[in-house]
């Protein structure tokens, strides 16, 4: 599983490398473009996802301790928080669309090319992440519905699902400074 996760890390690596190159080439405009993102929604989402990760970790421990009911509760909490994350993300996208920051839409208008490029990168990066969140949510639901998994004291299924969920979290931990913090001022 971890080998697969290493592979996933490299998938996002390409996006981060693109952001790095962009930032090195357009030092000041990068920060200006990032400023248009909603830092507070980004921060809230970081907190939500970190908490969700905690729930997944607790679920693993609960399964190990032979408390299947608690494992299920923790998993559902993780799922709920994951949905909250996606909801906030959706609200953010909707706001971007209203402000004309959504690339490829009719309303799109940008203050200069770097912002255009930055927003594109932002959507590719967070979009790819959102796809992973959705997959992760699916896995969490499967784990939560699976009776056997809850009663498995080795927590094999729940453990692997949680690993995946943590990875999704780690990726976000790096997306956050790359996209949001760069624009704080």
């Amino acid at each position: 599983m971890l080998v697969f996760l290493a592979s996933e890390v490299m998938l996002f690596g390409g996006i981060f490398a693109a952001a790095l190159a962009l930032r090195l080439e357009h030092e000041s405009a990068y920060g200006a473009a990032a400023h248009h993102l909603n830092l507070w929604l980004g921060t809230a989402n970081t907190a939500v996802l970190l908490t969700s990760s905690l729930m997944a970790a607790i679920a693993v421990q609960a399964a190990r301790d032979g408390k299947p009911a608690w494992a299920a509760r923790a998993l559902w909490a993780a799922v709920l928080l994951g949905c909250v994350f996606l909801a906030i993300k959706g609200a953010e996208y909707a706001g971007d669309l209203r402000e004309g920051l959504m690339p490829g839409t009719a309303q799109a208008h940008f203050e200069g090319t770097t912002q255009h490029l930055f927003m594109n990168l932002y959507f590719i990066g967070t979009g790819l992440h959102a796809v992973h969140v959705t997959i992760g949510l699916g896995l969490l639901v499967v784990a939560a519905l699976n009776r056997q998994a809850r009663h498995d004291q080795h927590a094999v299924l729940i453990g692997n699902v949680a690993l995946y969920w943590h990875l999704v979290d780690v990726v976000w931990v790096f997306l956050y400074p790359t996209l949001y913090l760069a624009g704080a001022r």
Binding site: H26, L117, N120, I124, L128
Partner: peptide, 26 residues
């Protein structure tokens, strides 16, 4: 995976013009 994401960016560039590799967008 690095190839995968790179090709994804090229396809996105061709379809919706995301511009990571396009000098006209910087």
């Amino acid at each position: 995976p690095v190839l995968a994401v790179t090709l994804l960016l090229v396809a996105a560039e061709r379809l919706i013009g995301i511009g990571v590799f396009d000098p006209r967008l910087g």
